[in-house]
Nucleic acid binder design. Structure first.
Lengths: 254, 254
DNA sequence: GGTCAATGAAATTTCCAAAATCTTGTCTTA
DNA sequence: TAAGACAAGATTTTGGAAATTTCATTGACC
């Protein structure tokens, strides 16, 4: 069962036909790995290991890395290669705060423009998210829940008519996901997952009831809780492991 | 006299040292040419001519194009190469509307956080803009006024603490500039330029007086006028030249 | 003992040419 | 006449190797 995708607004690659070049395929896989936190903050992304891992030559790899640099998921340092984006508490809050504003705008716009089709897609996405295996029981497909989660948030704002707003929200979503997953997969307690599901249901109800004020507020609170969660994990990590990974000093600091 | 740059928030490349690789240099030049409207909407960007024009091999050129594709100034079509971004009236208003929101947010934040240094940079940027040769009298350096213009808008929001907000505003600025310059350089009447200068002065006065409400409103109106100007030029171009450039049909249509 | 320069290794960046893909024009056929 | 197949040309994409830069280590000198 392919997941139903109608040009998901949170992933604006060529989704209808699949990647048609090696560079596009590597770009997608690399971005997924970045978002899954498989590369630590500031970790050097050396070309030869990546060529081996993704089974491609140097040209498509560099093209993918350059696109990711423009998306700010990797940093390109000049004559010194690429590294996974650094992290900081301040930047995390910057991303979350901006996402509250922009995704709130997008949600309100979608609720003004959405039709019955849009509503049904939200219901379907919520159902798939509820049925998806929780992220801690990830055996075959570790990213299954994450995909459903992204699809749900994408469905909520899919009716927003501003392509640019959706583009920016998508970029911010990717960075939020990375912050959330970058070091804390093991720590995710079941209790929290259940709370998240309740938040999603409440949010969906407000959206389908066309209660804009309430929906935007619930979305903002949802994101605020995510930010607080990440901040707590940051503090815990800073206390437990002073220097977790290579060049990660700036990560736990500011 | 080098133009004073303190990591201008509207151009987030490695500005302090200048481009350190060929790819970065080509990326900058190509972006400048795109923003100057030197490539028409949908125009095919073939590799060999570009290699000749920018005097480089194929690898750095493709890397630059891939970055620009992530910035949405060019489209990458799969196995069919790159083309300059298409344009449409609807997308132009999308860009302008979003820029009103985001640049307004950034301006308000800057006015909360700005110090004396920030104020003096605004004054200096305004002075340089006032002294810059108007865009129609562009003999040696056709982009001189445009650079000063960008620097002025950048100076206004430079004190905004949100790096992500500044990043997005910079991207939207680039697209606005392209829409403004893409076909209408010859049409720019002096009267309009003088009006723009008056708007800039009024805006600066409100900003330096820390009148947030007024400053944000003036900025929004300033952008609104730019949008209306572009829309008029669009309509005129659609009436006068039905198919101005290659594959530009979609441009004047929606 | 500490600072600085030189040397060599490692990594990135760039050029280049082969391979794969798309486009265009022509010819055939219904 | 229109539709389709086929081949030639043009263009993009990709992998590998050369050139350039950075980084670490060693040694010399003050």
């Amino acid at each position: 069962m392919k997941r139903a995708l109608a040009a998901s607004p949170l992933r604006d690659s060529a989704a209808d036909t699949g990647p048609r070049t090696v560079a596009e395929a590597v770009h997608e896989r690399l971005r997924a790995d970045l978002m899954a936190g498989r590369y630590g903050p500031g970790e050097a992304l050396r070309l030869e290991p990546l060529m081996a891992r993704y089974g491609c030559g140097i040209s498509p790899l560099r093209e993918a890395l350059n696109r990711l640099a423009a998306e700010r998921l990797v940093r390109a340092v000049g004559q010194r290669g690429f590294q996974a984006a650094p992290v900081s508490l301040a930047e995390m809050w910057d991303v979350v705060r901006l996402r509250q504003k922009l995704e709130g705008e997008a949600l309100a716009a979608a609720m003004s423009a959405g039709d019955a089709r849009w509503e049904s897609e939200i219901l379907a996405a919520f159902h798939r998210l509820a049925k998806a295996p929780p992220p801690e029981r990830d055996r075959a497909d570790p990213d299954s829940w994450e995909r459903s989660h992204r699809d749900f948030h994408a469905a909520l704002i899919a009716a927003c008519p501003s392509a640019w707003l959706l583009h920016f929200v998508g970029i911010l979503y990717g960075h939020t996901e990375r912050y959330r997953r970058i070091r804390f997969e093991r720590t995710l307690p079941k209790k929290l997952v259940r709370d998240v599901e309740a938040e999603h249901r409440e949010l969906m109800d407000a959206v389908l009831a066309r209660d804009k004020r309430r929906a935007v507020r619930l979305l903002s609170e949802h994101l605020e809780k995510t930010g607080s969660f990440i901040a707590r994990e940051f503090a815990a990590a800073a206390a437990g492991e002073p220097a977790p990974r290579r060049r990660a000093r700036a990560g736990a600091a500011a």
